[in-house]
Amino acid sequence: MFNRSLLLFVANRAEFFVSHRLPIAHAAQERGYEVHVATPEDPYVPDLKAHDLIWHELELEGKSLNPLQELRTIIHLIQLYREVAPDLVHHIAFKGVLYGSIAARIARVPRVVNAFTGLGHLFSNDTVKIRLVRWVVLQASRFGFGHPNSRTIFQNPDNVDEFVDRGVLDREQVRLIKGSGVDVTTFDPAPQPPDPPVVILASRLVWDKGVGEFVEAARLLEKKGIEARFALVGKSDPLNPNAVPEDQLNAWDENGPVEWWGFREDMPSVFANAHAVCLPSYYREGIPKVLIEAAACERPIVTTDMPGCREIVHDGENGFLVPPQDATALAEALLKVLTSPDRRRQMGARGRQIVQEEFSLERVVRDTMSVYDELLE
């Protein structure tokens, strides 16, 4: 590694960087990198500065599809790269990867890491508009990913195949790093609380995460006379057109069949007060961090047989996989978990074993540092 190499992260939200990528930044600092982070302004920016990270404001509208705004973002990134002159830039999440990789080629950034967290709405919907946008994105990606000294990180093999089979990436450029990692000393096992059993869905509260199916499954189980509680943990996103409106969340909390616990940062204690975790997502995930955290805390998982979700759940061992957008199948799988405390304990223990073997934070950090070393050598 070069002496005091300058590493620049580009992310679409400081909040996400703090929750998912801060350990990688710390590891880079410990190895002697000068670490910079570019994100839009948000309430988590002071946290970045508190960790001795040099912050740059990024002009990025997360949900915008305005061509002029998108062009301004690329121009801004080109200027940023020329001013900061990083030895290595690490792009995070879809827009950061797409625009950052294009800007990096134009600005002649010497080394690039593109890290997808998931493929999202663009690859999980198939309307005419989405297909058109997807085609444009893939054409632009061919230019950005053509950087001669770059690596692209995916979190699951389905997403690797999506880009390799379409001819956007060569497989030699790709590295598979499963998820964002979890500190298994922070997310540690807790005994199951007293009955009635509690099932939580903890996520950004957007419809694509299967919130509607979760609510319907709770209704179906309530009609069967199953004594259980169901809770949503998270917040609405007013900038996301697929967000569950806050009025709807309040209505469910007041009238059932689910509770709304709001946004929580103390997730280990949330898992300690739950018996099982559910994420019926039909969104193209990377690997949902909440499922890795839940498994580390020895909580059984019910999720969908979708890319990313199925990476952490071994069906029948540490949870159950169900078809996406199928509330009846979801209710049936939840019933198996709710009615058997012994099964919950066995599945929970197996889940923690899987996390320790495949998804630990140490492994993710080590594998990411290896990608940096490849490029810097």
Results as ranks from 00 to 15, higher is better:
Arg175Asp: 11
Ser180His: 08
Leu176Ile: 15
Pro197Trp: 02
Pro189Asn: 08
Gln192Trp: 04
Thr186Gly: 07
Asp195Gly: 11
Gly179Ile: 04
Val182Phe: 05
Asp188Lys: 09
Leu201Cys: 10
Thr185Gln: 09
Ile177Tyr: 02
Thr185Ala: 11
Pro196Trp: 06
Val199Ala: 14
Leu201Pro: 00
Thr185Ser: 14
Gln192Ile: 05
Pro194Trp: 06
Ser203Trp: 00
Arg175Gln: 12
Val182Trp: 04
Ala202Thr: 04
Ile200Gly: 00
Thr186Phe: 05
Pro197Gly: 05
Leu201Gly: 00
Val198Pro: 01
Asp195Pro: 09
Gly181Cys: 14
Leu201Ser: 02
Leu176Pro: 07
Leu176Cys: 14
Pro194Lys: 12
Phe187Lys: 05
Pro189Val: 14
Val184Asp: 06
Ile177Trp: 01
Ile200Ser: 01
Pro193Glu: 13
Pro194Asn: 11
Ala190Cys: 13
Gly181Tyr: 03
Ala202Cys: 08
Pro194Cys: 12
Thr186Lys: 15
Asp183Leu: 07
Lys178Trp: 06
Pro194Tyr: 14
Arg175Gly: 12
Asp188Gln: 14
Pro194Met: 11
Val198Arg: 13
Lys178Val: 04
Val199Trp: 04
Ser203Lys: 03
Ala190Glu: 14
Phe187Ala: 08
Asp183Asn: 15
Ile200Thr: 03
Gly181Gln: 07
Ala202Ser: 10
Asp183His: 07
Pro194Ala: 10
Ser180Tyr: 02
Asp188Cys: 11
Phe187Arg: 07
Asp195Val: 09
Leu205Val: 01
Val199Gly: 00
Ile177Gln: 01
Asp183Met: 05
Leu201Glu: 02
Phe187Glu: 03
Gly181Ala: 11
Pro194Arg: 09
Gly179Asp: 13
Val182Asn: 03
Ala190His: 14
Leu176Phe: 09
Ala190Phe: 15
Arg204Tyr: 03
Leu176Ser: 13
Ile200Pro: 00
Ile177Arg: 01
Asp183Gln: 12
Pro191Asp: 14
Arg175Trp: 04
Pro194Ile: 07
Pro193Ile: 05
Gly181Thr: 07
Thr186Asp: 12
Arg204Asn: 10
Gly181Glu: 02
Pro189Thr: 13
Phe187Asn: 03
Arg204Val: 04
Pro196Asn: 08
Pro196Val: 07
Pro189Asp: 13
Ser203Gln: 02
Pro193Val: 04
Pro191His: 08
Ser203Asp: 03
Pro189Leu: 10
Pro189Tyr: 13
Ala190Met: 08
Ile200Phe: 01
Thr186Cys: 15
Gly181Lys: 05
Arg204Thr: 05
Gly181Phe: 01
Ala202Glu: 02
Ile200Ala: 00
Pro197Arg: 03
Asp183Arg: 06
Leu205Gln: 00
Pro189Met: 10
Pro191Lys: 12
Pro189Glu: 11
Val198Glu: 04
Ile200Glu: 00
Ile177Glu: 00
Leu205Glu: 02
Ser203Ile: 01
Pro196Lys: 09
Thr185Asn: 14
Arg175Phe: 02
Asp183Glu: 11
Arg204Gln: 06
Val198Met: 13
Pro191Ile: 13
Leu205Ala: 05
